[in-house]
Design a protein around this nucleic acid. Sequence first.
DNA 1: TACATATGATCAT
DNA 2: TGATCCTATGTAA
Length: 275
Amino acid sequence: MPEGPEIRRAADQVAEALQGRPLRRVRVGQGYLKPLISALTGQRVIRVDTLGKAMLTRFDNGLTLYTHNQLYGRWKTGPADLPADGRRQLRIALVTDRSAAHLYSATTIELLNDQQVGDHPFLSRLGPDILHPETDKACLLERLSRNTFRNRRLGQLLTDQSFVAGLGNYLRCEILFVSGLHPDLRPTDCHPAQLESLTDALLELPARSYHSGGITNDPARAQRLMADGATFEQARFHLFRREGLPCYHCGEPIRKSRNAGQACYLCSRCQPAKT
DNA sequence: TACATATGATCAT
DNA sequence: TGATCCTATGTAA
């Protein structure tokens, strides 16, 4: 569950499962995590925050469980007796009298105090969370104008977690398409109206994905496509993973290129290389 | 059944 | 820039 909206939904589930009730049992799947058992057993989850793709589970003893799923990590929640999935590597299981949250295959699992959260080499470099209410249009326009960001190519900039935290490859492709901007353009190439379109899409698409469970396509279009027999995966995006299929706006075939090791999808007519 | 590819990030080169 | 972690999914055989 890779990008910010998916992580925020997972955090909602973990909070729903654990918040407010003391942990009866903590199980870990790897030796280096053993200290977490005594540190967390009996503690209560007071809140589950997200910072981009990082999840921060806050306990009432002042400690924070920082987890990062990267590509393969996955939370599963259920009743207290939720059986472990034997086909996957269980990292940690947090269990109250009523419910359980299991984390599988995650790359990063660290128990931190507030000082360590503040000094953390990854967390301290993150830009503002794209789903956070305080991340608004003015905030994004200000960041786009900064010397450190204004000359970067948009394709690179949007997935740089120090610019904003929570965007990944599908959101980058979808945001640039909706904004009508080519990934090789830089903020300094864009007219004010284009920066407005970009900030609008930067705010709208992650929020839409969070609320819809992963749809960034126009909601009415996605609904119509699924009514006509398309699968969720086929209907959810404007152009991500739609190589060779016609653009919904102009009919031009969607093109796929390779950009710094990641696939990049674009419509060459809707996203011209020059402004 | 086998293989290619992937929504992420780090590390080695 | 490529390999790597690890698992799921879709396509090819």
